[in-house]
Design a protein around this nucleic acid. Structure first.
Lengths: 182, 182
DNA sequence: ATGATCATGTAAACTGTTACATGATTGT
DNA sequence: ACAATCATGTAACAGTTTACATGATCAT
Protein backbone atom coordinates (compact mmCIF):
# COMPACT_ATOMS: atom_id res chain seq x y z
CA UNK A 1 0.00 0.00 0.00
CA UNK A 2 2.84 2.40 -0.72
CA UNK A 3 1.07 4.29 -3.46
CA UNK A 4 -1.34 5.45 -0.80
CA UNK A 5 1.47 6.93 1.25
CA UNK A 6 3.28 8.29 -1.78
CA UNK A 7 0.18 10.33 -2.64
CA UNK A 8 -0.18 11.36 0.97
CA UNK A 9 3.46 12.42 1.07
CA UNK A 10 3.12 14.56 -2.02
CA UNK A 11 0.04 16.25 -0.61
CA UNK A 12 1.93 16.96 2.63
CA UNK A 13 3.93 19.48 0.58
CA UNK A 14 0.82 21.36 -0.50
CA UNK A 15 -2.61 20.93 -2.13
CA UNK A 16 -2.78 19.46 -5.60
CA UNK A 17 -5.15 17.72 -8.00
CA UNK A 18 -4.81 14.18 -9.27
CA UNK A 19 -3.63 15.63 -12.53
CA UNK A 20 -0.91 17.63 -10.77
CA UNK A 21 0.19 14.65 -8.70
CA UNK A 22 0.45 12.52 -11.79
CA UNK A 23 2.93 14.94 -13.29
CA UNK A 24 4.92 15.03 -10.06
CA UNK A 25 4.96 11.24 -10.05
CA UNK A 26 6.31 11.17 -13.57
CA UNK A 27 8.97 13.76 -12.81
CA UNK A 28 10.19 12.63 -9.42
CA UNK A 29 8.84 9.34 -8.08
CA UNK A 30 8.76 7.55 -11.42
CA UNK A 31 12.02 5.64 -10.92
CA UNK A 32 11.26 4.65 -7.35
CA UNK A 33 7.53 4.21 -7.34
CA UNK A 34 5.76 4.55 -10.70
CA UNK A 35 2.01 5.03 -10.72
CA UNK A 36 -0.55 5.05 -13.47
CA UNK A 37 -3.31 7.61 -13.83
CA UNK A 38 -5.92 4.98 -13.22
CA UNK A 39 -4.35 3.85 -9.99
CA UNK A 40 -3.76 7.33 -8.64
CA UNK A 41 -7.28 8.63 -9.18
CA UNK A 42 -8.68 5.57 -7.47
CA UNK A 43 -6.36 5.95 -4.51
CA UNK A 44 -7.21 9.64 -4.07
CA UNK A 45 -10.87 8.78 -3.78
CA UNK A 46 -10.10 6.10 -1.23
CA UNK A 47 -7.88 8.47 0.78
CA UNK A 48 -10.68 11.04 0.78
CA UNK A 49 -13.22 8.39 1.86
CA UNK A 50 -10.93 7.53 4.77
CA UNK A 51 -10.52 11.16 5.81
CA UNK A 52 -6.76 11.33 5.23
CA UNK A 53 -7.19 13.98 2.55
CA UNK A 54 -10.07 16.25 1.57
CA UNK A 55 -11.22 18.20 -1.44
CA UNK A 56 -10.14 21.74 -0.61
CA UNK A 57 -11.09 23.35 -3.89
CA UNK A 58 -12.97 22.58 -7.07
CA UNK A 59 -11.87 24.13 -10.34
CA UNK A 60 -12.83 24.10 -13.99
CA UNK A 61 -13.23 20.81 -15.89
CA UNK A 62 -14.15 18.95 -12.73
CA UNK A 63 -10.75 19.62 -11.21
CA UNK A 64 -10.48 18.69 -7.55
CA UNK A 65 -7.68 20.02 -5.38
CA UNK A 66 -6.92 17.80 -2.46
CA UNK A 67 -5.36 18.82 0.85
CA UNK A 68 -3.92 16.54 3.48
CA UNK A 69 -5.86 16.46 6.76
CA UNK A 70 -4.44 16.29 10.28
CA UNK A 71 -5.35 12.64 10.30
CA UNK A 72 -3.47 12.21 7.02
CA UNK A 73 -0.37 13.90 8.41
CA UNK A 74 -0.46 11.64 11.43
CA UNK A 75 -0.76 8.56 9.22
CA UNK A 76 2.15 9.69 7.05
CA UNK A 77 4.37 10.20 10.09
CA UNK A 78 3.36 6.84 11.51
CA UNK A 79 4.18 5.16 8.23
CA UNK A 80 7.64 6.74 8.01
CA UNK A 81 8.72 6.28 11.59
CA UNK A 82 6.88 3.18 12.80
CA UNK A 83 6.37 0.89 9.81
CA UNK A 84 9.31 -1.18 8.67
CA UNK A 85 9.74 -0.70 4.89
CA UNK A 86 9.07 -3.61 2.60
CA UNK A 87 12.49 -4.72 1.37
CA UNK A 88 11.26 -6.66 -1.65
CA UNK A 89 13.32 -5.82 -4.68
CA UNK A 90 12.53 -7.20 -8.12
CA UNK A 91 15.10 -6.74 -10.84
CA UNK A 92 14.39 -8.40 -14.14
CA UNK A 93 17.74 -7.45 -15.64
CA UNK A 94 19.63 -9.17 -12.82
CA UNK A 95 17.30 -12.15 -12.89
CA UNK A 96 18.46 -12.85 -16.44
CA UNK A 97 22.08 -12.93 -15.34
CA UNK A 98 21.37 -16.18 -13.47
CA UNK A 99 20.51 -17.78 -16.79
CA UNK A 100 23.29 -16.39 -18.98
CA UNK A 101 24.89 -19.84 -19.02
CA UNK A 102 22.18 -20.99 -21.40
CA UNK A 103 22.97 -18.49 -24.18
CA UNK A 104 26.75 -18.91 -24.53
CA UNK A 105 29.68 -16.59 -23.71
CA UNK A 106 29.26 -14.18 -26.64
CA UNK A 107 25.63 -13.41 -25.84
CA UNK A 108 26.42 -13.31 -22.12
CA UNK A 109 29.15 -10.71 -22.60
CA UNK A 110 26.97 -8.68 -24.94
CA UNK A 111 24.18 -8.74 -22.38
CA UNK A 112 26.44 -7.52 -19.59
CA UNK A 113 28.03 -4.79 -21.70
CA UNK A 114 24.57 -3.62 -22.63
CA UNK A 115 23.71 -3.47 -18.93
CA UNK A 116 26.82 -1.34 -18.42
CA UNK A 117 25.75 1.07 -21.15
CA UNK A 118 22.20 1.34 -19.86
CA UNK A 119 23.46 2.22 -16.40
CA UNK A 120 26.05 4.64 -17.69
CA UNK A 121 23.27 6.40 -19.58
CA UNK A 122 21.15 6.44 -16.45
CA UNK A 123 24.02 7.89 -14.45
CA UNK A 124 24.49 10.62 -17.05
CA UNK A 125 20.78 11.40 -17.01
CA UNK A 126 20.69 11.66 -13.24
CA UNK A 127 23.77 13.87 -13.28
CA UNK A 128 22.00 16.21 -15.66
CA UNK A 129 18.91 16.26 -13.48
CA UNK A 130 21.10 16.89 -10.45
CA UNK A 131 22.81 19.82 -12.16
CA UNK A 132 19.74 21.41 -13.76
CA UNK A 133 17.34 21.28 -10.84
CA UNK A 134 16.90 23.88 -8.14
CA UNK A 135 16.71 21.60 -5.14
CA UNK A 136 16.28 24.22 -2.47
CA UNK A 137 12.62 25.04 -3.03
CA UNK A 138 10.81 22.64 -0.69
CA UNK A 139 11.44 19.83 1.77
CA UNK A 140 10.25 17.44 -0.88
CA UNK A 141 12.90 18.69 -3.30
CA UNK A 142 15.67 18.85 -0.71
CA UNK A 143 15.13 15.24 0.34
CA UNK A 144 14.40 14.23 -3.24
CA UNK A 145 17.92 15.38 -4.04
CA UNK A 146 19.26 12.73 -1.65
CA UNK A 147 17.26 10.08 -3.49
CA UNK A 148 18.62 11.22 -6.86
CA UNK A 149 22.12 10.97 -5.45
CA UNK A 150 21.36 7.43 -4.30
CA UNK A 151 20.19 6.59 -7.81
CA UNK A 152 23.27 8.13 -9.36
CA UNK A 153 25.53 6.07 -7.14
CA UNK A 154 23.52 2.96 -7.88
CA UNK A 155 23.73 3.51 -11.64
CA UNK A 156 27.46 4.12 -11.39
CA UNK A 157 28.00 1.00 -9.30
CA UNK A 158 25.90 -1.22 -11.57
CA UNK A 159 27.77 0.00 -14.64
CA UNK A 160 31.10 -0.80 -13.02
CA UNK A 161 29.82 -4.17 -11.91
CA UNK A 162 28.53 -5.00 -15.39
CA UNK A 163 31.91 -4.22 -17.00
CA UNK A 164 33.64 -6.35 -14.41
CA UNK A 165 31.10 -9.17 -14.81
CA UNK A 166 31.65 -9.15 -18.59
CA UNK A 167 35.35 -9.77 -18.01
CA UNK A 168 34.48 -12.74 -15.79
CA UNK A 169 32.48 -14.56 -18.44
CA UNK A 170 35.47 -16.20 -20.12
CA UNK A 171 36.71 -17.34 -16.73
CA UNK A 172 33.37 -18.89 -15.91
CA UNK A 173 33.03 -20.65 -19.20
CA UNK A 174 36.55 -22.12 -19.30
CA UNK A 175 36.31 -23.31 -15.69
CA UNK A 176 33.23 -25.25 -16.74
CA UNK A 177 32.87 -28.67 -15.17
CA UNK A 178 34.13 -31.48 -17.46
CA UNK A 179 30.84 -33.21 -18.18
CA UNK A 180 27.48 -31.52 -17.73
CA UNK A 181 25.25 -33.96 -15.88
CA UNK A 182 22.00 -33.75 -17.71
CA UNK B 1 5.71 -12.40 -16.74
CA UNK B 2 9.19 -12.87 -15.31
CA UNK B 3 8.24 -15.62 -12.90
CA UNK B 4 7.46 -17.72 -15.93
CA UNK B 5 10.98 -17.27 -17.27
CA UNK B 6 12.57 -17.63 -13.85
CA UNK B 7 10.99 -21.08 -13.54
CA UNK B 8 12.01 -21.90 -17.10
CA UNK B 9 15.56 -20.78 -16.36
CA UNK B 10 15.81 -22.99 -13.29
CA UNK B 11 14.53 -25.98 -15.21
CA UNK B 12 17.12 -25.30 -17.93
CA UNK B 13 19.68 -26.44 -15.36
CA UNK B 14 17.98 -29.79 -14.87
CA UNK B 15 14.63 -31.42 -14.01
CA UNK B 16 12.98 -30.53 -10.74
CA UNK B 17 9.62 -30.54 -9.00
CA UNK B 18 7.70 -27.48 -7.89
CA UNK B 19 8.78 -28.28 -4.38
CA UNK B 20 12.44 -28.33 -5.42
CA UNK B 21 12.14 -25.12 -7.38
CA UNK B 22 10.54 -23.39 -4.44
CA UNK B 23 13.57 -24.17 -2.31
CA UNK B 24 15.87 -22.92 -5.05
CA UNK B 25 13.85 -19.73 -5.26
CA UNK B 26 14.18 -19.18 -1.55
CA UNK B 27 17.91 -19.84 -1.58
CA UNK B 28 18.98 -17.99 -4.71
CA UNK B 29 16.37 -15.90 -6.48
CA UNK B 30 14.63 -14.67 -3.34
CA UNK B 31 16.34 -11.27 -3.27
CA UNK B 32 15.91 -10.61 -6.97
CA UNK B 33 12.62 -12.30 -7.76
CA UNK B 34 10.70 -13.76 -4.84
CA UNK B 35 7.91 -16.22 -5.55
CA UNK B 36 5.27 -17.83 -3.40
CA UNK B 37 4.38 -21.49 -3.48
CA UNK B 38 0.95 -20.68 -4.78
CA UNK B 39 2.27 -18.65 -7.65
CA UNK B 40 4.92 -21.14 -8.67
CA UNK B 41 2.66 -24.19 -8.80
CA UNK B 42 0.21 -22.29 -10.94
CA UNK B 43 2.92 -21.12 -13.30
CA UNK B 44 4.33 -24.63 -13.72
CA UNK B 45 0.95 -25.90 -14.80
CA UNK B 46 0.63 -23.07 -17.29
CA UNK B 47 4.14 -23.70 -18.65
CA UNK B 48 3.27 -27.36 -19.11
CA UNK B 49 -0.01 -26.46 -20.82
CA UNK B 50 1.97 -24.29 -23.23
CA UNK B 51 4.49 -27.04 -23.95
CA UNK B 52 7.51 -25.15 -22.59
CA UNK B 53 8.07 -27.79 -19.92
CA UNK B 54 6.78 -31.32 -19.44
CA UNK B 55 6.30 -33.78 -16.62
CA UNK B 56 9.28 -36.11 -17.03
CA UNK B 57 8.72 -38.19 -13.93
CA UNK B 58 6.12 -38.79 -11.25
CA UNK B 59 7.21 -39.71 -7.76
CA UNK B 60 5.68 -40.50 -4.38
CA UNK B 61 3.17 -38.08 -2.79
CA UNK B 62 2.03 -36.82 -6.17
CA UNK B 63 5.47 -35.41 -6.92
CA UNK B 64 5.92 -34.24 -10.49
CA UNK B 65 9.36 -33.66 -11.94
CA UNK B 66 9.35 -31.18 -14.77
CA UNK B 67 11.85 -30.95 -17.61
CA UNK B 68 12.31 -28.09 -20.01
CA UNK B 69 11.37 -28.86 -23.62
CA UNK B 70 13.16 -27.71 -26.78
CA UNK B 71 10.42 -25.15 -27.18
CA UNK B 72 11.03 -23.98 -23.63
CA UNK B 73 14.76 -23.61 -24.21
CA UNK B 74 14.08 -21.56 -27.34
CA UNK B 75 11.69 -19.30 -25.42
CA UNK B 76 14.24 -18.81 -22.63
CA UNK B 77 16.94 -17.81 -25.11
CA UNK B 78 14.59 -15.47 -26.91
CA UNK B 79 13.67 -13.85 -23.62
CA UNK B 80 17.28 -13.30 -22.58
CA UNK B 81 18.64 -12.08 -25.89
CA UNK B 82 15.70 -10.41 -27.64
CA UNK B 83 13.42 -8.99 -24.97
CA UNK B 84 14.44 -5.70 -23.36
CA UNK B 85 14.27 -6.15 -19.57
CA UNK B 86 11.65 -4.25 -17.64
CA UNK B 87 13.57 -1.54 -15.77
CA UNK B 88 10.87 -0.79 -13.21
CA UNK B 89 12.35 -0.62 -9.75
CA UNK B 90 10.20 -0.13 -6.70
CA UNK B 91 11.93 0.75 -3.48
CA UNK B 92 9.76 1.57 -0.53
CA UNK B 93 12.68 2.51 1.69
CA UNK B 94 13.87 5.16 -0.78
CA UNK B 95 10.33 6.37 -1.37
CA UNK B 96 10.13 7.36 2.28
CA UNK B 97 13.26 9.49 1.94
CA UNK B 98 11.31 11.92 -0.25
CA UNK B 99 9.03 12.59 2.71
CA UNK B 100 11.58 12.82 5.54
CA UNK B 101 11.01 16.59 5.68
CA UNK B 102 7.67 15.89 7.34
CA UNK B 103 9.08 14.08 10.39
CA UNK B 104 11.83 16.47 11.51
CA UNK B 105 15.65 16.19 11.46
CA UNK B 106 16.01 13.79 14.38
CA UNK B 107 13.67 11.21 12.89
CA UNK B 108 15.15 11.78 9.44
CA UNK B 109 18.68 11.06 10.65
CA UNK B 110 17.52 8.05 12.61
CA UNK B 111 15.77 6.72 9.52
CA UNK B 112 18.86 7.12 7.35
CA UNK B 113 21.19 5.56 9.91
CA UNK B 114 18.84 2.63 10.19
CA UNK B 115 19.00 2.27 6.39
CA UNK B 116 22.80 2.24 6.69
CA UNK B 117 22.67 -0.54 9.27
CA UNK B 118 20.21 -2.62 7.29
CA UNK B 119 22.44 -2.46 4.23
CA UNK B 120 25.61 -3.14 6.20
CA UNK B 121 23.92 -6.24 7.57
CA UNK B 122 22.90 -7.26 4.07
CA UNK B 123 26.44 -6.75 2.82
CA UNK B 124 27.77 -8.92 5.63
CA UNK B 125 25.21 -11.62 4.85
CA UNK B 126 26.08 -11.64 1.17
CA UNK B 127 29.77 -11.77 2.02
CA UNK B 128 29.12 -14.86 4.10
CA UNK B 129 27.13 -16.46 1.32
CA UNK B 130 29.89 -15.59 -1.12
CA UNK B 131 32.50 -17.20 1.10
CA UNK B 132 30.56 -20.30 2.10
CA UNK B 133 29.16 -21.33 -1.26
CA UNK B 134 30.81 -23.57 -3.83
CA UNK B 135 30.03 -21.58 -6.95
CA UNK B 136 31.67 -23.83 -9.49
CA UNK B 137 29.06 -26.56 -9.66
CA UNK B 138 26.76 -25.39 -12.47
CA UNK B 139 26.25 -22.55 -14.92
CA UNK B 140 23.42 -21.38 -12.73
CA UNK B 141 25.74 -21.12 -9.73
CA UNK B 142 28.61 -19.57 -11.66
CA UNK B 143 26.40 -16.79 -13.03
CA UNK B 144 24.52 -16.59 -9.76
CA UNK B 145 27.83 -15.67 -8.15
CA UNK B 146 27.97 -12.58 -10.37
CA UNK B 147 24.52 -11.58 -9.15
CA UNK B 148 25.53 -12.01 -5.51
CA UNK B 149 28.52 -9.78 -6.17
CA UNK B 150 26.19 -7.17 -7.66
CA UNK B 151 24.06 -7.34 -4.55
CA UNK B 152 27.07 -7.04 -2.27
CA UNK B 153 28.23 -3.91 -4.09
CA UNK B 154 24.72 -2.50 -4.01
CA UNK B 155 24.40 -3.08 -0.27
CA UNK B 156 27.80 -1.52 0.32
CA UNK B 157 26.97 1.51 -1.81
CA UNK B 158 23.59 2.05 -0.19
CA UNK B 159 25.10 1.87 3.29
CA UNK B 160 27.69 4.48 2.37
CA UNK B 161 25.04 6.64 0.78
CA UNK B 162 22.82 6.41 3.86
CA UNK B 163 25.64 7.51 6.18
CA UNK B 164 26.42 10.41 3.88
CA UNK B 165 22.73 11.33 3.56
CA UNK B 166 22.39 11.39 7.36
CA UNK B 167 25.18 13.98 7.52
CA UNK B 168 23.33 16.10 4.98
CA UNK B 169 20.13 16.36 7.03
CA UNK B 170 21.30 19.27 9.18
CA UNK B 171 22.40 21.11 6.05
CA UNK B 172 19.01 20.62 4.45
CA UNK B 173 17.08 21.69 7.50
CA UNK B 174 19.13 24.84 8.21
CA UNK B 175 19.02 25.92 4.56
CA UNK B 176 15.24 25.80 4.86
CA UNK B 177 13.39 28.60 3.09
CA UNK B 178 12.45 31.48 5.47
CA UNK B 179 8.69 31.03 5.53
CA UNK B 180 6.97 27.80 4.56
CA UNK B 181 4.11 28.80 2.28
CA UNK B 182 1.25 26.68 3.46
C1' DA C 1 -13.56 26.15 -35.19
C1' DT C 2 -10.42 23.10 -33.78
C1' DG C 3 -6.47 20.91 -31.85
C1' DA C 4 -3.97 20.64 -27.58
C1' DT C 5 -4.23 20.03 -23.03
C1' DC C 6 -6.66 19.60 -18.78
C1' DA C 7 -9.18 16.50 -15.98
C1' DT C 8 -11.46 12.49 -14.13
C1' DG C 9 -13.31 8.09 -14.21
C1' DT C 10 -14.39 2.82 -15.16
C1' DA C 11 -13.61 -2.06 -16.61
C1' DA C 12 -10.95 -6.01 -17.68
C1' DA C 13 -6.86 -8.53 -17.41
C1' DC C 14 -2.92 -9.75 -15.08
C1' DT C 15 0.34 -10.45 -11.17
C1' DG C 16 1.25 -11.24 -6.54
C1' DT C 17 0.06 -12.40 -1.50
C1' DT C 18 -2.25 -14.77 2.23
C1' DA C 19 -4.76 -18.31 3.93
C1' DC C 20 -6.79 -22.56 3.72
C1' DA C 21 -7.03 -27.48 2.46
C1' DT C 22 -5.53 -32.05 1.76
C1' DG C 23 -3.00 -35.98 1.99
C1' DA C 24 1.27 -39.17 1.42
C1' DT C 25 5.68 -40.71 3.12
C1' DT C 26 9.55 -40.97 6.12
C1' DG C 27 12.13 -41.28 10.30
C1' DT C 28 12.06 -42.12 15.18
C1' DA D 1 2.02 -43.90 16.71
C1' DC D 2 3.15 -39.53 15.51
C1' DA D 3 5.75 -35.54 14.20
C1' DA D 4 8.21 -33.65 10.50
C1' DT D 5 8.53 -33.00 5.98
C1' DC D 6 7.21 -33.71 1.30
C1' DA D 7 4.03 -32.30 -2.15
C1' DT D 8 0.35 -30.06 -4.61
C1' DG D 9 -3.56 -27.38 -5.14
C1' DT D 10 -7.53 -23.63 -4.64
C1' DA D 11 -9.84 -19.30 -3.29
C1' DA D 12 -10.06 -14.66 -1.88
C1' DC D 13 -7.99 -10.51 -1.87
C1' DA D 14 -4.79 -6.66 -3.02
C1' DG D 15 -2.12 -4.13 -6.23
C1' DT D 16 -0.82 -2.95 -11.06
C1' DT D 17 -1.38 -2.24 -16.04
C1' DT D 18 -3.81 -1.34 -20.24
C1' DA D 19 -7.48 0.30 -22.64
C1' DC D 20 -11.51 2.71 -23.13
C1' DA D 21 -14.61 6.63 -22.29
C1' DT D 22 -15.99 11.25 -21.66
C1' DG D 23 -16.04 15.94 -21.63
C1' DA D 24 -14.44 20.86 -20.41
C1' DT D 25 -11.44 24.70 -21.34
C1' DC D 26 -7.78 27.26 -23.51
C1' DA D 27 -4.99 29.24 -27.15
C1' DT D 28 -4.68 30.22 -31.96
Amino acid sequence: MSLRHAALGLLADGPASGYDLLKTFDRSLAFIWPATQSQLYGELNRLADDGLIEVSNEGPRGRKDYSITEQGRAELERWITDVEPDRIRRNEALLRVFFLGTVGPAHAKAYLEREATVHEDLEALLQTVERDTDWDTSDFNRYGHLVIESGRRYAHGQAQWAHWAATQVDNLETTEAPAQTR
